[in-house]
């Protein structure tokens, strides 16, 4: 995608990595839009290397047992469940 053009095949490849199905129409439209957006992102090449000092500190707390969600609450929004477990699609 670096010569300023993006093909619908490349969009579909990224969509597959991101686990998002696209219609043919979306893949075509996104290809044109992505070329424009990525072209704008190219300007970041001009940004000087900058010393970064992240202000990071560890935040600790005691590891204590507390009340959590009940099974019922945790499963309430699931489209499908079985015997108190989430039910998902077959892995392969």
């Amino acid at each position: 995608m670096n010569d300023g053009s993006v093909s619908p095949e490349e969009v579909r490849h990224v969509a597959a990595l991101a686990r998002v199905s696209l219609t043919e129409e979306e893949a075509v439209r996104f290809a044109a839009q992505f070329a424009e957006v990525l072209d704008a992102f190219e300007r970041l090449d001009e940004v000087p290397d900058t010393e970064r000092e992240p202000e990071l500190v560890n935040v600790m707390r005691a590891d204590e047992v507390r009340e959590g969600l009940s099974h019922e609450e945790a499963l309430r929004n699931a489209p499908d469940s079985e015997d108190g477990y989430f039910r998902g699609p077959p892995v392969s």
Partner: peptide, 15 residues
């Protein structure tokens, strides 16, 4: 209604 595997079902829900 996806009949597919894990990856296909996720991609369908996300679409």
């Amino acid at each position: 209604e996806s009949e597919g595997n894990w990856n296909e079902a996720f991609a369908a829900v996300r679409e």
